[in-house]
Amino acid sequence: MVEPLCYGTIPVGQAVGPLAYVVPRDFNQRRLAALSGRDLSACFRTEDGEFAEPSFLYGQHSWVMRRHFSWAGSVHAKCDVALEGPVRPGDRIHVTGRIADKYERRGGRYAVFEMATVDDDGRPVCTVRNSMLLNFREVVTRRRVAQADPPAASAPDPAKAGGPALAVSFGPKALTRDDILSFYAAEEQVYGPHASLHNDEAAAKAAGLADIIAPGRYSLGLMSCLLGGLHRDRWLPGARFSVAFLRNLLPGVVLRASAIPRERSNLIGRPATTIDITCMDERSGLPVLSGTAELPGKGGWSPGCR
């Protein structure tokens, strides 16, 4: 039985799953077409074979938690990802979700979902914590009445970051309505159909949006393309991301994902590189995503690559 996820009665700690899914063999073909107008297949291929563009793993709460709960009109606010290794087309994955927390901030009510994914042999693939703004329409209506947007995070300034003044980027990518539908449909091919703000215009408008929006993880998909182009799959085992989604990805935005090295650190006994990651809307000059990533030092970052 599916029950409404009401903030006041959110059952923190409740788990759902595990549920098993198979990644279709043509997943990358469908997914990458929505991320770029050029052939990116080489970015996700190694001598061991093809691996799946991993951002589809970051939004599994949309399917797993909705086996037991319903919530409409929410938007993705924050995402923390810990990757352990690649998933390959044709693999079966097993996903367990739980409601990890809830909190209120500046009038927003948030639910935090934690998703743990393992492969068929029980080896960890990734753990993801997603903070979802449940009362998006209420918050955006109040913001419009106040005629003010919340302060936006600015893109990292390499001159102030303490590292070399060097960035690599992927884009620009003009986001079309068809891109949004195709990107989301690639996930539906894994998990099954689900009407949402990402493919249902009526649902988007009911939430106070002008049109459907891309999932926030679309920006992280662009980041996967950037890192895959640099290092194929060598950045995946041990990669950590923590990002905030700052603006909705409506059709017409022109996106560029960028990464700037900040400092050397240590990750589980191995050298690692901390980078600032940003996705900008070049049309408005405003960031839509901002955060950090910590990548394994072995192949995790190579400033000379483009």
Rank of each mutant, 00 (worst) to 15 (best):
S290Y: 03
G97R: 14
L19I: 01
H76Y: 12
C305W: 15
G304L: 15
D200S: 12
V140D: 05
C225I: 00
L35E: 03
L175W: 07
L209P: 09
V125W: 03
C79M: 13
S224T: 08
T96L: 14
L209W: 04
L226D: 02
A272V: 00
G17N: 05
H194S: 02
V23L: 00
V16I: 11
H198L: 05
A210C: 00
V81I: 00
K102I: 04
T141Q: 09
Y103Q: 09
V145K: 13
K160E: 08
V87G: 13
Q29F: 11
G163F: 03
L197A: 04
S284E: 03
G13V: 13
D121R: 15
S70P: 11
H194N: 04
Y21H: 02
R88H: 12
A148D: 14
I268Y: 09
R109H: 08
V75K: 05
F245H: 12
I180L: 04
V23E: 05
F56T: 07
Q189H: 15
L249T: 07
D178A: 15
A33S: 13
K160A: 07
A206L: 11
G162Y: 10
P86I: 01
D48P: 13
D233M: 07
S290M: 01
V254A: 12
P24V: 02
C126L: 04
I277D: 04
P296T: 05
D101P: 12
V112E: 08
V128I: 06
H68E: 07
A204Q: 01
K160Y: 05
S196Q: 10
L32Y: 02
R30C: 11
A82F: 10
C79F: 10
S131K: 02
R88M: 06
F183H: 08
A210T: 06
R92I: 03
S302V: 09
Y7E: 01
A185N: 10
L249V: 04
W63P: 03
A202P: 11
K160W: 07
I268L: 03
R30V: 08
P215R: 01
S41A: 08
G108F: 11
P271A: 03
K205L: 01
T9V: 12
Y7K: 08
G49E: 02
A207N: 11
A20H: 12
P156N: 05
D233F: 05
R129E: 06
F56C: 10
D26R: 08
V128Q: 00
P303Q: 14
E114V: 02
R142Q: 09
A20P: 00
I275T: 02
R142G: 11
L19C: 11
G299M: 04
L19D: 03
E114P: 01
W301G: 05
L222G: 08
R98C: 14
A33F: 13
G73I: 09
